[in-house]
Amino acid sequence: MIYIGARSIPIVVLTALFSGMVTSVQSAYQFSSWVPSWYVGSVVGNSVLLELAPMITGLVLTGRVGATIAAEIGTMRVTEQIDALESLSFDPVSFLILPRVVAGTIMFPFLIIIADVCGVFGGWVAATTSMDVTTYEFIKGFKTWFHPWDAWFGMIKATTFGFTITSIACYHGYYTRGGALGVGKATTTTVVISCVCIVFLDYLLAELFL
């Protein structure tokens, strides 16, 4: 929980903050002549809650959490630590895999909430400092098209991504073969497959729930 959740906060804050800022700047650039500037708050809010926070956080955590889990369990496999666990009558699945998958599934939504807040905050900072948008206008735009379901949808995505990333990482780590080469291969495979699954699930969930 601590590794997957608390220690991921800095990278989640950083990426969400800049995602919100760039969304704000780019939408203002596209709106420049024919759309009122207060719409920026709406675009930032919807983009961050529905797409950017879950998606970018999911991809970033694939690298941070998924790769780490795959390398960790893979190293345990090739150095016979998993065999040692079994020889001591432990079930490696309930001892190694289950806690990581549960931690990922529970902690990802919390990280996405943080990403949501930071993303919107970043959008507000960019809008009010580098454009002609006041705080009142930004909040007006944000509130006008805000639907609580969008935030819940982001949570559904977060839970799904958390479960998917940790499950893929645990699977590839657990079935690692060979030495350091095998661990490297398991880690790379985890990151690649998780990224593909995230973009695919992102589309699938949108089709199902929106």
Partner: peptide, 30 residues
């Protein structure tokens, strides 16, 4: 397996745990 002690080629110690935690883990389980 509760009746068997296994010594692995390179020790197979759990590298996230101290020496005493490695032994305690086995004792707490068995």
């Amino acid at each position: 397996r509760e009746k068997i002690g296994m010594v692995f080629q390179f020790g197979a110690l759990f590298d996230s745990m101290t020496v005493s935690e490695n032994i305690e883990l086995a004792l707490k389980k068995l």
